[in-house]
Lab assay of single mutants.
Amino acid sequence: MDVFMKGLSKAKEGVVAAAEKTKQGVAEAAGKTKEGVLYVGSKTKEGVVHGVATVAEKTKEQVTNVGGAVVTGVTAVAQKTVEGAGSIAAATGFVKKDQLGKNEEGAPQEGILEDMPVDPDNEAYEMPSEEGYQDYEPEA
C-alpha cells in the first residue's frame, strides 16, 4: 500500500510541476504579447503594419512553449490582441483601416495563427491545408 501511495504522490508532483510550467509559459506569452502591443503603439504610420505582424510573430513563438489545451486559448487571445492593436492603430490615425491585415508588401496577414497546427491532446499534428499553395516548377 505504501508503494501505491508513494507512486500516487510522485504522479501528483509531476502534474503540479507540469501545471506550473504551463502557467509560466502562458505568463511569458502574455508578456511578449504586451511587449508587441507597446511596440505597435510606438510606431509611426509606416511601421504600424509591420508592428502588428511582430506582435503576432512574438506571440506565436511563445505559444510553442505552452502545451496542451492552453495553446488553443493563448492563440485565440493573441489573435484578438493583434486585431485590437490594429483597431487602436486605425482609431489613433497611425494607419488607414484599409491597410490593416496586410503586410508591407500588401499581402493579407489573416491566418497567421489560424494555420498553425495545434492539437490540445498532444496526440497528432496535421499540416495546414494546401489550398493556398501553388506547385513550383523550376525553369529549365
Rank of each mutant, 00 (worst) to 15 (best):
D2S: 04
A124R: 07
K10D: 02
T72G: 15
H50N: 09
T44E: 00
K34D: 00
P117L: 07
V55C: 08
M127C: 07
K80Y: 15
V82S: 07
E131M: 02
E126F: 04
V118W: 02
Q99E: 06
G31A: 09
K32M: 03
L113F: 10
K43P: 00
H50L: 15
E131V: 13
G84C: 11
A17I: 03
A124F: 13
P108N: 08
A53F: 05
A69P: 03
E123R: 03
G86V: 12
A11T: 06
P138S: 10
V16H: 06
G47W: 09
E13H: 02
V52Q: 01
Q109S: 05
D98A: 05
K60T: 02
G51L: 13
S9Q: 12
V55S: 02
D2F: 14
V3M: 07
G7S: 13
V15G: 01
L113T: 13
V82E: 02
E28W: 07
K45Y: 14
P128A: 06
A69Q: 09
E105S: 08
G73A: 13
N65T: 05
T59S: 07
Y133K: 05
K21M: 05
G68A: 04
D135R: 08
A140C: 10
A107H: 05
V3E: 00
V49N: 02
P117C: 09
K10W: 05
Q24M: 11
V118Q: 02
K96P: 04
E57R: 06
K32Y: 07
K96C: 10
G41H: 15
K45T: 09
V55A: 06
A27M: 11
A17P: 00
N65E: 07
E126R: 10
D98C: 11
E110I: 08
V82R: 09
G106D: 03
E131I: 07
V26N: 00
E13I: 02
K12Y: 03
V52M: 14
G73V: 14
L38G: 02
I88Q: 01
K96V: 07
G86Q: 07
D121F: 03
V37M: 09
S129W: 03
K58Q: 04
P138W: 07
V118G: 11
A107Q: 04
V82C: 11
V70C: 03
D121A: 06
S129A: 13
T59E: 00
A17D: 06
E57Y: 09
V71R: 11
G68K: 13
V52R: 02
A69H: 05
T72P: 04
V63C: 02
K58C: 14
K97F: 02
T72Y: 05
K60L: 12
V74T: 07
A19R: 04
V37Y: 04
Y125W: 08
E57Q: 04
V95K: 05
E130Y: 11
V82G: 02
T64Y: 10
N122T: 05
G7L: 11
S42G: 07
G93W: 10
K34M: 04
V3I: 04
K97G: 07
A53D: 12
P120A: 11
E105N: 13
K6N: 08
M1H: 00
E61P: 04
Q109T: 04
G41S: 14
D115F: 07
E131S: 08
V15L: 15
K60H: 04
A124M: 04
G31V: 03
G31M: 14
A107I: 02
A124Y: 05
N103Q: 04
L100T: 06
Q134P: 06
K34Q: 03
E104H: 05
K21L: 11
E104K: 12
T54L: 13
D119V: 02
V74H: 01
T54S: 07
V70T: 02
E110A: 14
L8D: 00
V37D: 00
K60E: 01
G73L: 11
P108E: 12
S129K: 05
D121Y: 08
G47V: 13
A85G: 05
D135T: 04
G132T: 14
T75K: 13
T33H: 01
G31R: 13
D115W: 03
V16D: 01
V3L: 09
D119H: 04
N103P: 06
M1I: 00
E126S: 04
G51N: 04
Q62M: 06
P128M: 13
G7K: 13
D115M: 11
K6V: 02
V40K: 01
F4M: 03
K45E: 00
P120W: 03
V26E: 00
T54F: 08
E130G: 11
L100F: 10
V37C: 05
V118R: 13
V71W: 14
M116G: 06
E61A: 09
Q134C: 04
V82F: 06
E83P: 02
K60R: 12
Q134A: 09
V37K: 00
Q99R: 05
K80N: 03
M1Y: 00
K60N: 01
G106S: 10
G14K: 13
M5Q: 00
S129C: 06
V63N: 01
V15N: 00
V70I: 09
V55E: 00
D119M: 09
E61M: 11
I88Y: 01
G93H: 07
K97C: 05
G84A: 15
V40M: 07
T44M: 13
M1T: 00
E105I: 01
G25Y: 14
L100H: 04
L113M: 15
A89N: 02
A85D: 02
P120V: 05
K34T: 05
V40Y: 04
S42M: 12
D2Q: 12
G86F: 14
N103K: 06
A56F: 13
Q24F: 15
G25N: 03
H50T: 14
D119K: 03
T44F: 12
P128K: 06
G68N: 15
G106H: 04
F94N: 03
G41Y: 12
V52C: 09
V16Q: 06
A27N: 09
A107P: 06
G73F: 03
A85L: 14
P108D: 08
Q134S: 05
V16T: 05
V82W: 15
G47Q: 10
G31I: 10
V77T: 06
P108W: 07
V40R: 01
V71I: 08
G36W: 08
A89V: 15
V52H: 01
G41I: 09
K58D: 01
V63H: 01
V16E: 13
E110F: 05
A90N: 03
V77D: 01
G86H: 08
G67Q: 05
V49E: 03
K96L: 10
V40C: 05
F94W: 09
G31Q: 10
M116R: 03
N65S: 10
K23A: 03
Y125Q: 15
G67P: 01
G106L: 10
K96D: 04
N65W: 14
E28G: 11
D135A: 03
E130T: 14
A29Y: 12
G86T: 06
G47T: 15
K6M: 04
E126G: 13
A91K: 03
N65M: 07
Q134R: 10
P108I: 14
E139W: 05
D115T: 09
E131N: 08
F94V: 03
S129R: 04
G14H: 13
Y133H: 08
N122E: 09
D2Y: 14
V26R: 00
E139S: 12
M127P: 04
A56M: 12
M1L: 00
V82N: 03
T44G: 04
N65Y: 09
